[in-house]
Amino acid sequence: MSDWENVPASELQEQKIQESDPALESVSENSSRAPINPLDAPVIVLEHVSKEYDGTTENHALTDVSFSVKKGEFVFIVGPSGSGKSTMIRLMMKEISPTEGRIYVAGKDLAKLRKRQVCKYRRSIGIVFQDFRLLQDRNVYENVAFAQQVVGAPKRRIPKEVSKMLNLVGLSGKYKNRPTELSGGEQQRVALARALVNNPMILLADEPTGNLDPQNSWEIMNLLEEINRRGTTVVVVTHNREIVDRMQKRVISVQSGVIVEDKKGGYGHE
């Protein structure tokens, strides 16, 4: 069985790279990057990506963005509102397609994925949306369990996994509540639990602490770091300068759709 969702993130990585995707090879030839070392392979590659939402060329959400994220890396994406951070996340999960440029994840050209493969791909990544996107007619438990049902997890394993996850984000007391009965921060944590419950190989989180107080924000960040330590590649969009400065990870700064800085350390200029 080669379903992505059933293969542990670490194994999957090597398997995909060894498949020697022709698309990936041609990319490495054309670009100036060094030959790919399987242990140091980029999981996410953006190549000269531009995105214009309405087709008007002067209003680019993203312009010629290139970067790559290595397997097991922890990356912050920071920048002012409207700079294109969410657009990047949406491109990486193939919610939208780039106007120009290419995106590879785990050696696959996202533009070439067929419909079924898109489903599989999305199941192999965990996503926290900026606006949560919880199912309004289902309670907290069902929202998290839903992610497990989607990947076809065995029925008897679901309750255990879900309650473990709800414990982790500190919501086990509210598993029966509907999203409308939760605070913004609580909804955010449900979204995080849903993103993590399937043990994704990549976690894309758009402002996962946007609605949380400093105390809760730190707990979530520590959780993300723990997930990252276990092998999941983590990309976090955030505004929280304090957290970014303290955690000393790689930081990609965007402004008006252009990467202005990409280095390890703090929030940087602005």
């Binding site: 919610e95 791909y121 199941r123 839903f146 049902q149 989607v150």
Partner: peptide, 14 residues
């Protein structure tokens, strides 16, 4: 709901 399902990888059949 359906669009959210699509986004977290639910198949068409599902």
């Amino acid at each position: 709901e359906i669009s959210i399902m699509h986004l977290i990888g639910a198949t068409d059949i599902f």
